[in-house]
């Protein structure tokens, strides 16, 4: 029984390591084409449009509600210490350092990542990836790479917009609704947000954009070529993508503090 348990742990560990190696191999092979193959501007632009611009609305809504909730909740807590004037900086730092990149990435996974996996998975099922291969077009260069690049480029931009919308929404709730002094709110925000905080947020956004692109393309590319296989791959992409983002977030946060 115990031996069996250890055996299972060992087996799944090995499987995970093998998978990690496969992800690394596949993504680095795709990225190697970034320099090599002829410039495919049109494919990049189309993917940024589908994945980045297409995710703007949901990111904006998430940003607005995040800022509003933070202001409301932060006010409740800070008021207990009589430090309502710190509200501006509390909201700004939470959004810029943590919530902007993390929630932005999670929303991107839900909105764009899952569709990347499903799309590539269906291309696998219907033989379109093989067809590209037979027409001497490398699917890694043509399908996988532009999608990784698109999430890598789009997420930092989306996170910046998330931040701004969140800050504005926090200001509206904090100043107009809860009556925090406008000057104190803005002054605290500007005084407490340091360049390091902005860099931390953007570095996270770039890292998460890369992770989302790599994991979601990988899951689709390696999907089992059946209908259930694609469904399973899409779920796995969302789960693995979200967990990776949160885990890497912890590592990066401990790095930046």
């Amino acid at each position: 029984m115990i031996v069996n348990l250890f055996g299972r742990i060992g087996r799944s560990t090995l499987q995970m390591i093998a998978k990690l190696g496969d992800v690394t191999l596949l993504s680095s092979r795709s990225l190697a084409f970034a320099g090599k193959s002829p410039w495919q501007g049109e494919h990049y632009v189309r993917q940024i449009y589908a994945l980045g611009v297409g995710s703007f609305v949901i990111i904006a809504i998430t940003g607005a509600f995040t800022g509003m909730v933070l202001a409301l909740q932060g006010y409740y807590t800070l008021a207990k210490f009589g430090s309502e004037s710190l509200l501006g900086s509390a909201v700004a730092l939470s959004i810029i350092r943590e919530l902007g990149p993390v929630l932005g990435a999670l929303m991107l996974i839900g909105r764009a990542g899952s569709s990347i996996t499903a799309e590539i998975g269906i291309m696998r099922v219907t033989g379109q990836l093989d067809a590209l291969e037979m027409m001497a077009v490398n699917p890694l260069a043509r399908i996988v790479l532009p999608r990784i690049m698109a999430t890598l480029i789009a997420l930092p931009l989306l996170v910046t917009l998330f931040d701004l919308i969140g800050l504005a929404a926090g200001y509206v709730v904090g100043v107009d609704l809860l009556g925090v002094n406008a000057g104190a709110y803005v002054g605290e925000t500007v005084a407490k947000v340091l360049p390091e905080d902005l860099y931390a947020g953007w570095v996270k956004a770039i890292a998460f954009g890369f992770i989302v692109g790599v994991i979601c393309t990988y899951m689709g590319y390696r999907a089992e070529p059946t209908t259930e296989g694609v469904a399973k791959a899409t779920t796995q992409a969302v789960v693995a993508g979200s967990i990776s983002v949160l885990a890497v977030d912890y590592i990066l946060t401990s790095f930046f503090l």
Binding site: V45, G52, A154, L161, D163, L164, V190, L198
Partner: peptide, 26 residues
């Protein structure tokens, strides 16, 4: 599509610069 993506990238980068200058006072 090209136009929309161009606007998206421009607004995004402009926001980054604005945040860096006004908020981070870089």
């Amino acid at each position: 599509i090209e136009l929309v993506v161009g606007m998206f990238v421009f607004i995004g980068i402009a926001s980054m610069v604005w945040m860096a200058l006004k908020l981070g006072q870089v």
